[in-house]
Simulated scan of single mutants.
Amino acid sequence: MELTFDGEVIEWRGPAPFVWVRVPDGESAEIAAVARSLTYGWGCIPVAVSISGSDWTTALMPKDGRYLVPLRKAFREAAGIEVGDVVAVGLAFGA
């Protein structure tokens, strides 16, 4: 399964600040429909991510009925991406 969407870069302040792209409602619903077959535990879902010409693997995190795509600091700095930006995201599941 592959999905593409535009999402806003947000900061979530837990014990430490983390930067994410929130997956929109519709795409989150599509992921939730197949999550049981994809998750490795705690609702985390392994995924290949493509943003701004960079590709990496990570895990989506469930939060408030939606999913979050974590953005690594080194990637954000290299791509010039900041909190509040809207980025085009490609996700590939089962990769």
Rank of each mutant, 00 (worst) to 15 (best):
E2W: 10
L3H: 00
T4K: 15
F5C: 10
D6Y: 10
D6F: 09
E8H: 09
I10R: 11
I10E: 12
E11A: 12
G14L: 14
F18V: 07
V19P: 04
V19F: 06
R22I: 01
P24D: 03
P24K: 01
D25V: 12
G26Q: 00
G26E: 14
A29Y: 05
A32Y: 05
V34M: 14
A35T: 01
A35N: 03
L38I: 05
T39I: 08
T39K: 09
G41V: 03
I45E: 02
I45H: 03
I45K: 02
P46D: 03
P46W: 06
P46C: 02
P46M: 00
V47P: 01
A48H: 04
A48N: 06
S52E: 14
G53F: 03
S54L: 14
S54A: 14
D55G: 07
T57P: 04
A59T: 09
A59G: 08
L60P: 04
M61V: 10
P62F: 01
K63S: 10
K63G: 00
D64C: 04
G65K: 05
R66D: 09
R66A: 13
Y67E: 13
P70T: 03
P70A: 09
L71D: 10
K73T: 14
K73Q: 15
F75E: 13
F75T: 08
R76A: 09
R76G: 07
A79G: 11
I81D: 02
E82G: 06
V86G: 00
V87A: 01
V87R: 01
V87P: 03
A88I: 00
V89D: 01
L91W: 03
A92Q: 12
A92S: 13
F93M: 12
